[in-house]
Deep mutational scan, measured.
Amino acid sequence: AVCQVIGMYDYTAQNDDELAFNKGQIINVLNKEDPDWWKGEVNGQVGLFPSNYVKLTT
């Protein structure tokens, strides 16, 4: 993983390639090539999510 982030809001996947997560959930970021849509993993599920829905862990 590149880094870990925390969901600031609940996110519901809109497409099959997206990653759903809940507020407060830890997401392992796998790829930040696109500044707006990062690739991440939660509980074995991998997908894209909007980078503005998360904050970096300290």
Score class of each variant (00 low, 15 high):
T58D: 14
Y11C: 07
N43Q: 08
N28V: 08
W38Y: 03
L48T: 11
D34M: 03
G7Q: 01
L56Y: 11
L56P: 12
T58N: 10
A20D: 10
S51C: 07
L56T: 14
C3M: 12
N15M: 09
A20V: 06
D17C: 09
T12A: 13
W37T: 10
N31T: 11
S51F: 00
V54P: 02
A20W: 08
D16I: 12
D10T: 14
L56N: 12
G24I: 04
L56Q: 12
K23E: 13
G7I: 03
G47Y: 01
W37C: 06
I26R: 12
C3V: 08
P50V: 00
D34Y: 00
I26C: 12
W38T: 01
E18F: 07
V46C: 07
E41K: 07
W38H: 03
Y9N: 15
Y53K: 14
N31D: 15
W38M: 04
K39H: 15
V5C: 14
L48G: 06
I27V: 09
E18Q: 14
W37G: 04
V2G: 12
L48E: 03
E33D: 13
G44H: 05
P50A: 07
T57G: 12
E41R: 03
D16C: 11
V46A: 07
V5Q: 05
Q4M: 06
D10A: 11
T57R: 12
K55G: 09
D34I: 00
Q45E: 12
T12E: 13
C3H: 04
D10H: 10
L56R: 09
L19R: 03
A20K: 10
Y53Q: 11
G40M: 05
A1K: 07
L48I: 14
V42W: 02
M8K: 15
M8F: 10
C3T: 12
Q4P: 02
M8W: 09
N15F: 06
A20S: 13
E18Y: 10
N28G: 04
G7T: 15
D34K: 11
N15Q: 11
N43M: 06
T58P: 12
D10E: 07
Q45T: 11
D17S: 15
E18V: 04
M8R: 15
K32Q: 13
A1I: 15
V29F: 07
S51M: 06
F21H: 04
F21T: 00
